[in-house]
């Protein structure tokens, strides 16, 4: 085993995702502590130019037509082979749509443990210590691998991205394994349809979660938004239920918003939601559960029932 750290780069639609830089920055710091190199691994086809924009100790660029777009099977096979060949001490993935397909699969294939949902990572006297955010953001678990090496999947936004931007020497190789008999085939990218309102352009958002209780109550939120001259956004369960269009979803698989005021009504504050709104200037959370994690990121909070609050608030906005 080496003391090197692998960092999986992610790219979509010709652009590197921020998680790449977040992992690279953290990876460099850890590699220095462990006495190894931080190696960013970029899988792609004709994507060398992307590989050249990551700041790590080295970039390993694997070029193959089957890697042009993310494909969990192709990525998995290549990474498993590289991990076996080059025996890194630590493999860092994003806890993203990409990393969620790979981490646990690689763990079984390579026999290395996986520590997931990581938002804190350190080398403590040569031991890797990873802290996971679990139970919907309510609990932190600090763990160490039983052996020396492991895989971690890190939450988006856990580490600063700037330290990972720059450039490093690129080693280009062909795929270490054949990729011509894949059972998973990429067909196409599907882009989001433009919605009726762009929630990323609003000064205020009335954002509702499962606490709204039922579809019939959406109206109450809309009335407040109308009075404020802003839009209604939502957590995922609301758009999954079809109560609001997909274009109103805030979070990891939705949109990232930065309004001046974000009213989080009946939203628990799961990590996937926080990813999309923690950059708002002022966050006001209303939730009947005083222990809801949303209160850890909100600036102001109240524990009243949102269904009681909404009509009163709308009246006050109209009257004010």
């Amino acid at each position: 085993m080496t003391n090197d750290i692998f960092i999986l780069a992610e790219h979509l639609d010709g652009k590197l995702a921020d998680i790449t830089f977040e992992l690279a920055g953290k990876g460099k710091q850890l590699a220095a502590a462990l006495g190894g190199k931080a190696v960013a691994v970029v899988l792609g086809s004709g994507a060398r130019a992307l590989a050249e924009t990551i700041s790590a100790d080295a970039v390993l660029y694997v070029d193959d037509p089957a890697l042009a777009e993310f494909n969990p099977e192709a990525y998995g096979r290549v990474l498993a082979a590289l991990i076996r060949e080059r025996a890194p001490r630590l493999v860092m993935l994003g806890n993203t749509s990409v990393g969620m397909d790979l981490g646990a699969w690689l763990s079984v294939m390579t026999g290395l443990p996986l520590i997931a949902y990581v938002n804190g990572l350190a080398a403590d006297g040569g031991t890797i210590v990873a802290t996971s955010q679990i139970y919907g953001g309510k609990i932190q678990a600090e763990a160490v691998p039983n052996g020396e090496a492991c895989l971690v999947s890190c939450l988006g936004g856990a580490f600063p991205a700037d330290a990972g931007r720059g450039s490093s020497p690129v080693e280009q190789i062909a795929s270490p394994v054949p990729l011509n008999d894949l059972k998973v085939r990429f067909v196409k990218l599907i882009r989001p349809e433009g919605g009726d309102v762009d929630i990323t352009q609003q000064q205020i958002l009335v954002s509702i979660g499962r606490g709204i209780g039922g579809q019939e109550n959406i109206e109450l939120a809309q009335e407040l938004a109308d009075a404020l001259g802003c839009a209604v956004s939502a957590s995922r369960p609301i758009t999954d239920a079809g109560w609001l269009p997909k274009t109103r979803q805030v979070g990891k698989s939705g949109l990232t918003v930065k309004p001046k005021v974000y009213l989080a009504f009946g939203i628990s504050g799961a990590p996937e939601h926080l990813e999309g709104m923690r950059g708002a200037e002022t966050i006001i959370a209303v939730n009947t559960d005083p222990k809801a994690p949303i209160f850890d990121v909100a600036h102001y909070g109240a524990t009243c029932d949102l269904l009681d609050l909404l009509p009163v608030l709308t009246e006050k906005v109209k009257g004010g």
Binding site: L114, Q140, A141, E142, A143, N146, D296, A298, H299, G301
Partner: peptide, 22 residues
């Protein structure tokens, strides 16, 4: 394959200022 050394509730770096009342 890994061991939890410590489990804890997140020390909220900044908890919301709570507004009392109805």
């Amino acid at each position: 394959g890994s061991t939890v050394r410590r489990m804890f509730k997140p020390e909220s770096a900044g908890h919301a200022e709570m507004w009392e009342g109805g």
